[in-house]
Design a protein around this nucleic acid. Structure first.
Lengths: 130, 130
DNA sequence: CTGCATCCTACATGATACTG
DNA sequence: CAGTATCATGTAGGATGCAG
C-alpha cells in the first residue's frame, strides 16, 4: 500500500496509470527527454495542444515533481522546463513504450514508414546516459 | 508514420498513449498477465469497475488484438479471456511501470508498506518466461 | 454467468480572446 | 513570451435494470 500525493494505491502500477491517464503528459515528458525546453518550444513541439492545456499539464507535472520550472526575470519573460531526477527516470519506461509500439505496428499495423518521429526524441536521446 | 486501427501516428509512443489513455485497460492487462481469466474473475479482481465498463474495455482490447476471447457453449455461459502474443509482449512495459512506481514512492511518497499488490500480479509473474 | 440497454453526469479538453 | 479568463462540449464512466 502506497500513499502518494494524498492518494492511496494498492499497486505501484496504479500510480503510473493515475499520473499518465490523460492525453498530454506522456508527450510532454517525451519532448523533455530531449533536453530542457521553453514554454514556447513545448507549445510548438507538442502537436495540437492548446496553451491552456499545456499550462495545466505543466502545472500538474510540476506538482507531481516530474518536472522543474525555472523562471528568468527578463523581459520578455523566459521560463524553462526540465525533468527532475525521478522524471528523467521515466526514460526506460518511454523506451519500452517506443519499442512495444514498433512491435505492435508489425503485428497489427496496416502501414508504416521510417519518416522520423514527430515527437523529435530520437533513439540516441532515448538511450542517453548522463 | 504509422497507420494502425485506422489511425495515423507520428510516433510509436503515441500508439501506446492512445490505447491506454483510459482508467481500466492497464489494470485488465495486468491481471491477465497472471494467466487467463473468466469474466467474473476479472470483474472481482479489477477493483471498482462496473460490469458495463468491463465489457466495453474487454471489447476494445479484443478489437486492438491485445486479448483473445474464448466462449464455451455451456449453461451457464463460460467466457475466458487471455493475452495474445502482442498482449503478452506488454509484460516488460508493465514491469517498467511497476519498478518506476516503486522508485516514485521512494522519491515522492508519504507512506508505503509491503502488504502486497492488490493487482495480484506478483514479481514471479511479472518476470515469467513461457 | 455474461452480458446489453438506458439514462445521466463530471471532467478533460477545445476555442477564442485577452494581459503583464 | 508566457501565460489567464471564459465559455462550450464530447465522451468516458457510473447507476440501474433487464435478458438469454
Amino acid at each position: 500500500m502506497y500513499l502518494v500525493n494524498g492518494k492511496e494505491y494498492n499497486c505501484s502500477v496504479a500510480i503510473v496509470q493515475d499520473i499518465f491517464n490523460d492525453k498530454w503528459k506522456l508527450g510532454i515528458i517525451w519532448h523533455l527527454l530531449a533536453g530542457e525546453k521553453r514554454y514556447k518550444e513545448l507549445f510548438e513541439e507538442v502537436k495540437e495542444i492548446t496553451q491552456k492545456t499545456l499550462t495545466v499539464k505543466l502545472r500538474e507535472l510540476e506538482e507531481k515533481q516530474l518536472i522543474a520550472r525555472e523562471v528568468f526575470p527578463e523581459i520578455p519573460p523566459k521560463v524553462v522546463y526540465s525533468l527532475t531526477p525521478i522524471g528523467e527516470r521515466l526514460r526506460p519506461l518511454l523506451k519500452e513504450m517506443y519499442d512495444w509500439g514498433i512491435d505492435y505496428v508489425q503485428a497489427c499495423g496496416e502501414f508504416s514508414t521510417e519518416e522520423g518521429c514527430a515527437l523529435t526524441c530520437k533513439d540516441e536521446n532515448l538511450g542517453k546516459n548522463e
